[in-house]
Write a protein that binds this DNA or RNA. Sequence first.
DNA 1: CCACCATAGTACGGTCGCCGATGTATAAGC
DNA 2: GCTTATACATCGGCGACCGTACTATGGTGG
Lengths: 107, 107
Amino acid sequence: MREPTYFILLALHAEPLHGYAVASRAKELSDGRVELTAGTLYGALDRLVDEGQLVVDREEKVNGRKRRYYRITEAGEHATQAEALRLRQALEAAAATIGPLPKAATA
Amino acid sequence: MREPTYFILLALHAEPLHGYAVASRAKELSDGRVELTAGTLYGALDRLVDEGQLVVDREEKVNGRKRRYYRITEAGEHATQAEALRLRQALEAAAATIGPLPKAATA
DNA sequence: CCACCATAGTACGGTCGCCGATGTATAAGC
DNA sequence: GCTTATACATCGGCGACCGTACTATGGTGG
């Protein structure tokens, strides 16, 4: 799993969001690092629905603009956690190899 | 940076290794998760040399088989650390969102 | 003795996710 | 009334990864 996909799934953990809101939340969660463009965002959402990691929760119409809300499935939650574990293992490998990392700038 | 590339760089942190040895070390460091196939391995090594993250250290001939040793550059070390920091941030985002992860199986 | 396997590297083609770009549509702001 | 922000769709291209096949050598097993 790549980073954009990962943050999309994380963004949807708490509650269903529509596409544009997913992008905003992903940017927040990544401290501004992950800025999802339309191509990445909607492409990934479609793919994740196909894979059963997301489902379409509902569609609304707000001020003429339609909003499609996505909800994460159990499979999606599971994949997210598996990915996080993979990241942790990769991080531990770095710590064991190159030593402790510098402190992060306090968020 | 993708995971295979990351573990290739980690594998070369301590000392120069030849291609095949890089693959073995990467598998070790990843607890067996990352098994580099020939296509991925040599493609990535060439690319990393092009990018200045690795240099060819020397070439030996052992039992008729040539071995090409790669050494990581400062740029490569820097990229590795930057990647590890990125991973940590992604992991922290998960912790903040879905809560603490289960304990890893003791290595 | 011959097949197989591990080592070591080269080469090629395909796939998949990401990304930029473009287009549609509406409502708000200047 | 033109631009900007919101919201989504689609298309094409690229790059990293990966499978596969090939060359080559030396050790192991049937």
